[in-house]
Write a protein that binds this DNA or RNA. Structure first.
Ligand SMILES: [Mn+2]
Ligand SMILES: [Mn+2]
Ligand SMILES: [Zn+2]
Ligand SMILES: [Zn+2]
Lengths: 139, 139
DNA sequence: GATATAATTAATAAAAATTATTATTTAGGA
DNA sequence: TCCTAAATAATAATTTTTATTAATTATATC
């Protein structure tokens, strides 16, 4: 079984159930996925999995910081495994989302911000190269 | 009537209906608001307004770029009048959202990004001063 | 390895959010 | 003022999310 995922669950004090392993593996495979994509992918491994189980686990996996939500304009939120801070390129044509390393991407000059910063999220919307080439929509 | 809002609707080729004026005025008053907040505020001016009308208009106002969606982790999307690019401070305690000027806030080093950038969105999550002081949640 | 127990799950119902339908009204141009 | 396409209110339908509950299961303790 996905030792990586199993250990991660244990480390975060969550019981290791096949459903959770399946859900996390599905997200890991997809990189970023919304509820429906996770559910669909998870069912290929565990066909009896209930959608309510996906919802509940997404919630607890986020609470325990194992997952991170990525809220996106004009789409359902996607979820990803927690990892190094990074930014996202989001295509307005096809909705695709990809990671982009934040190092050297931008410099935050937060000298004068009077706010306890926990997390900085940079989302860059535009047109991905695939869509730029095709000139057409939805791929 | 809100001449500002009326002209804005005309300029974007949308019919000037009292419902649209009310919706835009509500958002203008609130700064940022989700569907429910818009509906509630709008009803104080126009009690017969239908929720479906709010939904449909939000969609067309976004399509015509009069409004902008602000998708937020763990909350329903908020909407604001289109204005200068800026960033947001979002409190994880109370959910409050406030504008912050992006000028001098960060520098984007986008030399090597091979992507047609249309819009850069920087969301800073953390704890607002009100919540920091109170130490407690939900205000 | 067997047992106890609290957590988790599947199935389902319920609730909340969003979109579609339709008859009526209305904004804006002729 | 009149016409007409667009917009609205009311409502139904659909979709999305959460709650409930009986059965199952992971894990701690023996
Ligand atoms: Mn990512
Ligand atoms: Mn704003
Ligand atoms: Zn694309
Ligand atoms: Zn706060």
């Amino acid at each position: 079984m996905q030792m990586q995922v199993v250990n991660s669950l244990k480390a975060h004090g969550l019981k290791v159930t096949p459903q959770r392993v399946t859900i996390l593996s599905a997200i890991e495979k997809k990189g970023h996925a919304n509820i429906d994509e996770i559910y669909k992918e998870a069912k290929t491994t565990n066909p009896t999995m209930s959608l309510a189980t996906v919802y509940k686990n997404i919630t607890s996996l986020i609470e325990t910081k194992l997952l991170k939500e990525v809220a996106i304009n004009n789409q359902k939120s996607k979820y990803e495994l927690s990892k190094e801070p990074h930014s996202h390129l989001i295509c307005k044509e096809c909705g695709s989302l990809e990671d982009i390393d934040s190092n050297n991407l931008f410099t935050l000059n937060n000298d004068k911000i009077d706010f306890d910063i926990e997390e900085v999220e940079l989302n860059i919307y535009g047109v991905c190269n695939k869509c730029k080439d095709k000139g057409t929509s939805k791929n």
